[in-house]
């Protein structure tokens, strides 16, 4: 089943835009760009007068990948869960648990593969430009599946419940954006003098119920921009990691329950 889903995802033209756009960007940068790596190991790309430090490269990159994933993942999930397709799949010796696990595994296999291809292409750019190996930048790009996982979990639940591509895309966009907002919401409201305990309770709950795109961004920034870790770095990484993992459980559990309850 994993092989079937992986092949489906590898055939997905929108998802394929990920390595293709990376390749195009690298080719363009080879032509017009320059690269350098500082003594602290921080990579940067220079296009004319514009200098992009590695955290900015990764941020722009993850915004693009997030959008590609939100557009492409619902397609294969919704197609497979339509009764006309599901009756072909689930009439075989395939359990719903197997399908569920394979959807996760297939998505992660393709995501890891595309991350490795992208990291490889960026490495080629830095090597050709003679700047050396941009270690932390590559680790940041290789860690992108961390970010894709909460996007996938969000899209999975919405696809299972709505079976509608557009609703899944738009709600997915809103929910993942909300996750990023919730991470800073408490500080924002606190700073602006809001004292509602109910609001803070809602924010805390939301933080652990909505798949943690916010914590994933934060984990990536720990990797590519360690300077951003200001307060008690190590314990902060542990708590963000826990937050990241726990926040995915409600949507995952609910998706699993819904798939098992669906008739085709």
């Amino acid at each position: 089943m994993t092989r079937f889903i992986t092949i489906q995802l590898l055939r997905n033209k929108i998802l394929m835009a990920w390595p293709v756009l990376t390749l195009i960007s690298v080719v363009v940068l080879l032509w017009y760009g320059e690269s350098n790596i500082s003594d602290q190991g921080e990579a940067a790309i220079q296009i004319g007068d514009l200098i992009l430090p590695q955290w900015q490269i990764v941020t722009s990159y993850i915004n693009l990948i997030g959008l590609i994933v939100l557009i492409s993942f619902p397609a294969f999930l919704i197609e497979n869960l339509q009764p006309e397709r599901a009756s072909l799949i689930f009439s075989k010796a395939v359990s719903r648990t197997q399908f569920f696990g394979s959807a996760f595994a297939g998505s992660m296999i393709v995501t890891v593969l595309y991350s490795v291809i992208s990291a490889g292409l960026i490495l080629v750019f830095f090597l050709i430009k003679g700047a050396g190996v941009p270690g932390t930048l590559l680790v940041g790009i290789l860690a992108l599946p961390l970010l894709v996982l909460p996007y996938f979990v969000t899209v999975l639940l919405l696809s299972v419940i709505t079976k509608n591509y557009l609703i899944t895309f738009f709600l997915g966009y809103v929910i993942t954006a909300l996750s990023t907002f919730l991470l800073v919401a408490e500080g924002l409201f606190d700073a602006s003098g809001v004292e509602s305990q109910l609001l803070f309770a809602a924010i805390a709950t939301g933080n652990y119920v909505i798949p943690g795109v916010g914590p994933a961004y934060e984990l990536l920034s720990f990797i590519v921009n360690p300077v951003s870790v200001t307060v008690d770095g190590e314990s902060s990484i542990v708590s963000v990691s826990l937050h990241y993992l726990i926040s995915m459980l409600p949507f995952t559990g609910l998706s699993y329950y819904c798939i098992n309850k669906q008739e085709f």
Partner: peptide
């Protein structure tokens, strides 16, 4: 799912 190792199905509507 082992039961379905014996059977193959042609649905009336498929995609």
């Amino acid at each position: 799912k082992l039961a379905r190792k014996t059977v193959s199905y042609l649905p009336e509507v498929y995609s």
